[in-house]
Design a protein around this nucleic acid. Structure first.
Lengths: 312, 312
DNA sequence: GCCATCATATTGTCCTGGACAAAGCGTTAA
DNA sequence: TTAACGCTTTGTCCAGGACAATATGATGGC
């Protein structure tokens, strides 16, 4: 694969520090050291001071592994066999491709030199399909396609960055355009700590806006105490949380229970995202939104249950 | 101060784990442990398993300390004397206030329940002053005011989040509206790894857009190798880097040297941000932008030096 | 055949205490 | 005033042990 990595500078040719690997892969220093001890991988070099130096190749493998783990694979499976197998496992994995041909167009456009056509294409699809369909169908398909492309070595990191940036602009711009004149319900949108997931948040925000509800987004990574504080201060009707698929179910559950207990009774709590999708029973007092397409109906329900009152 | 923190849930009343503190303060686990060993602060409780449990109060102090360190204060100064002094040091610090009365309006608006007026106010100022002045004068003043408010305990975290979110929306929306039809120069905008600074990037992007130059923003934290790859792939004329004030000068310098060496000769390298402002001599082959207001003139210079050619 | 319960294996994160390079600071020499 | 140098401060790394939380697999009851 003639990816970006090719252009390594002499200075860093040998490899990178454990801290850099932590940043680039999302795997903690402790985890990296323990893997090395237990599974024999990664097996970094050592510099003059005995500190670990990870060759680019191993970092690449680690990124791959992290990505697979985020899809539910377990480390033991990925790390015990000779690492060479990784490539094959990848080749075997994208079996789901094929259903997603619709999104294939993104790849060549991303790889083209000019971004304007891409920007235009996104804008056009948004205009043609409408914000709602764009968010529910187009963007998820694109996300999936990009993810697969990344794993297949087809898409460079900066191209993924670029994609995120462009979609983000489209969505923010749409939300902005839709305005939002103090309509009810007042919604507070965020994720709990340990969650990234910016694009997902933005997608939800756009959907809400498309349905006349304007969320106050706190961005990602809000501590629970802050969520509660904000909800109290802004007299929020609904607190909506988004959990990505990678987020451990138990933690989501705990966060929801804790939050439910701390929020005023009249404030509803909605939760959604891949992290909750499959999970059987929900938490008492929490409304689970199984898919993006459920947002609009759920909102309609809320309106039915809360007929418009005069004063605030 | 009747801040957000008040609403602590029973479950977490005792305190939080070291990982949570790392996330919330940005101070590494190692650093937290070493401070405890060396300075006696923080002094977390221990749970049944001997693991550190940080009371909210100490976390609050740590956040304060981090903020002060980001302004250049050194840990020894902050941690050695009885921590109680912190409050006083804070009270003494905002001496710079007063020059910034212009931005005071943001505080009450942020604290008001409704966000719509705030959104409207920002939009109006943007419309009245123009994008350029908004970015060069208004936003920096607001940022400063918010930072001070945060340190003084006047502004809660979620209010700061909210502010960032709203300004971000305004800027992105403006950039989006301005369009950008494949104009030269082709600019690549980003920060190197270890840098956050999203809002700063966006401000630069907006300024460029206001001057008819459309940057391709890679977002923050792009590894150098990726920057080079992206620059090559997109046939970039100018790579623009932003360094925040907290970023150590030496690292900026190294990054710039490395990048300069790796980029094609014809690609210019511009660098700006608080991290470079004071520093005397610049790096060979790097154009240092001392202030936001210099962006427009520098761009004009570029145009003068690169008269429009026909083909692409 | 399907679901609950338990035992077992896996896995991430935390701990201690030592070490050391890099960055900061102040002083002296040019 | 700038440059070079030594001392101090400070962040990050290391090793190896420990253990709770989670996933997996087996067993038994409906």
């Amino acid at each position: 694969m003639d990816n970006t990595q090719a252009a390594a500078t002499p200075a860093q040719a040998a490899g990178v520090s454990i801290a850099a690997v932590e940043r680039d892969t999302g795997l903690g220093k402790d985890t990296l050291r323990v893997w090395e001890r237990r599974y024999g991988f990664p097996r970094p070099l050592r510099d003059a001071f005995g500190e670990r130096v990870y060759p680019a190749e191993q970092v690449e493998h680690l990124r791959l592994i992290k990505r697979l783990m985020d899809q539910g694979q377990r480390p033991g499976t990925l790390l015990r066999p000779p690492i060479a197998e990784l490539g094959e496992r990848l080749a075997a994995n994208p079996a789901k491709v094929g259903a997603d041909d619709t999104a294939d167009w993104i790849v060549p456009m991303l790889k083209a030199r000019d971004i304007d056509p891409l920007r235009a294409e996104l804008a056009q699809r948004l205009a043609r399909d409408g914000l709602e369909r764009f968010v529910i169908e187009t963007v998820p398909a694109l996300n999936r396609r990009i993810g697969e492309g990344w794993m297949a070595g087809e898409i460079a990191i900066f191209e993924e960055h670029l994609y995120t940036e462009l979609v983000q602009n489209q969505l923010r711009s749409s939300i902005h355009t839709l305005g939002g004149r103090g309509t009810r319900p007042q919604i507070l949108l965020t994720t709990v700590k340990d969650e990234e997931h910016i694009l997902g948040l933005l997608m939800v925000e756009a959907l809400l806006a498309a349905n006349g509800a304007f969320a106050l987004s706190l961005g990602a990574q809000t501590p629970i105490a802050d969520i509660v504080g904000a909800a109290r201060a802004t007299n929020t009707d609904i607190v909506a949380l988004s959990f990505s698929g990678a987020y451990p179910w138990r933690k989501s559950r705990d966060a929801l229970i804790e939050l439910r207990a701390a929020l005023p009774e009249r404030t509803e709590l909605w939760a959604g995202g891949g992290g909750l999708a499959g999970r059987g029973r929900s938490v008492a007092g929490v409304r689970v939104i199984g898919a993006l397409s459920e947002i609009a109906p759920t909102l309609a329900e809320w309106h039915a249950a809360h007929p418009r009152r005069s004063g605030h």
